[in-house]
Design a protein around this nucleic acid. Sequence first.
DNA 1: ACAGTATCGATACCTTTTTATCGATACCAT
DNA 2: ATGGTATCGATAAAAAGGTATCGATACTGT
Lengths: 222, 222
Amino acid sequence: MAYGYKIGSIPLTTVQRFASYLPALRDMQRQGRSVVSSASLAEMLRLEAIQVRKDFGYLGITGRPKTGFQVDDLIGAMEHGLSWNRVSDAILVGTGHLGTALLNYRGFGYHGLAIKAAFDIAPDRVGALINGVQVQHLDEMKPFMDAKMAILTVSPESAQEVALRLVRAGITGIWNFTGRTLLLPEPIVVQDQDIAIGLAVLSAKLTARAREAIEAESKPPA
Amino acid sequence: MAYGYKIGSIPLTTVQRFASYLPALRDMQRQGRSVVSSASLAEMLRLEAIQVRKDFGYLGITGRPKTGFQVDDLIGAMEHGLSWNRVSDAILVGTGHLGTALLNYRGFGYHGLAIKAAFDIAPDRVGALINGVQVQHLDEMKPFMDAKMAILTVSPESAQEVALRLVRAGITGIWNFTGRTLLLPEPIVVQDQDIAIGLAVLSAKLTARAREAIEAESKPPA
DNA sequence: ACAGTATCGATACCTTTTTATCGATACCAT
DNA sequence: ATGGTATCGATAAAAAGGTATCGATACTGT
Ligand SMILES: NC(=O)c1ccc[n+]([C@@H]2O[C@H](COP(=O)([O-])OP(=O)(O)OC[C@H]3O[C@@H](n4cnc5c(N)ncnc54)[C@H](O)[C@@H]3O)[C@@H](O)[C@H]2O)c1
Ligand SMILES: NC(=O)c1ccc[n+]([C@@H]2O[C@H](COP(=O)([O-])OP(=O)(O)OC[C@H]3O[C@@H](n4cnc5c(N)ncnc54)[C@H](O)[C@@H]3O)[C@@H](O)[C@H]2O)c1
């Protein structure tokens, strides 16, 4: 009924890989390398060359036989597609351990993200200065703020409630680190960033591998 | 050639959803609710009921018509499948902003994860005490440690080098937060936890939505 | 200039995952 | 007891994404 995969006309998985290509391409750019083949990029990222080419096809970037793709073109097209070439303002709610780490993260410059304000409700958090941003009380959050994106790092129990307040304040995109599913009116874009999911995959793979090892042991080697 | 999706016989996406079902199910358990239908769980998690049922099918858990599934059974089966029902030791390397946040995270108890040791190389980090764990110099890392999983939160430039050291020290699973692709010998399980990927999806969706809005404006409303 | 070759890109194919359909089952009310 | 119905689960269809094939193209070296 919903098939909510593609973003515009680009597969979700392709968009995800864009974020992986970018640091590798930026490294090359820094090293003065101007062209790259799908095969060599694939090797660096443990992908298949054909997949890399197909991804680039979605960008409308076309390579040249025998040489490859222009590094600058690729970076430009990806950054443009993600709007990472210009700065977007964001706010952050929940300045605990994780929120503080994100406020201190230097890498968001590469992603066109600027955290302009931070909010909390704990008396010992409000007023704190974190990497140049002063923590305000959540009640100070006003719809006039022109940030459209919010980073949600409050405790899981508060997640739903705070998210609703964000929507009322005019936020249209929420980057949700709380691991709870937010139930919000349709037009809001929610991106769940649940690290438990990554841990689950890792755990499952390790568990599966351990099981295989035991099975292999019970059978004598061929 | 590779199609690396399934973990054992379970689709990767299903394993990922297990991590999302769990907190919701634990909430129910806490509230004394013992049965849940696929439809109600789907609604909470913004999924389709049939997908929930199919996921549970992989666990071998079978529901009862007209009532639903036993909450306890589901939790037990998922935790068992992920080995989250017993504690695994892990080490963490890179005690900067993010590493510190993870060391302070209380939620890992639910995931059967115990961070037993932390390492860094910066003189002002070594010796620090973070949530009961004393930061050691990376050179102190010894193969005798029985942790099999490592959390990698060093700076991106050191990622590859440190990962190789981890492998030499007997680590078989790496939870990689650095955003860099690690090139390691085959049997090592690497789980990339690149938040830039989540941000890319959010950015792309917001950008696509903005584009749609502009297009809708240029056309007069029907 | 020309042969040889690395690399791209269009097309077709295959695998995996999601969704629809529908009969079977167990609970509930009468 | 019986009929009504919510819910499950098997099967099949649809959709999405990944991979193989192969002709076309542009660079390299002679
Ligand atoms: N720390 C981690 O490494 C980590 C890892 C995975 C997930 N998470 C998730 O990230 C979120 C934050 O984790 P944390 O470790 O930083 O927790 P934390 O307890 O350190 O921080 C939570 C912060 O949110 C604030 N808060 C709570 N309710 C609020 C409300 N209604 N309005 C405004 N602020 C409110 C608290 O005052 C606190 O400062 C949690 O949802 C957690 O599950 C954290
Ligand atoms: N802070 C965030 O919110 C955030 C967000 C996204 C990604 N990341 C990624 O997580 C990683 C850590 O980020 P951070 O913000 O904590 O950075 P940070 O600079 O605060 O911490 C990095 C830590 O790694 C240590 N380190 C560096 N090289 C090392 C080595 N060879 N051996 C041992 N320790 C070493 C440093 O001493 C430092 O303590 C980075 O790869 C970053 O890209 C962080």
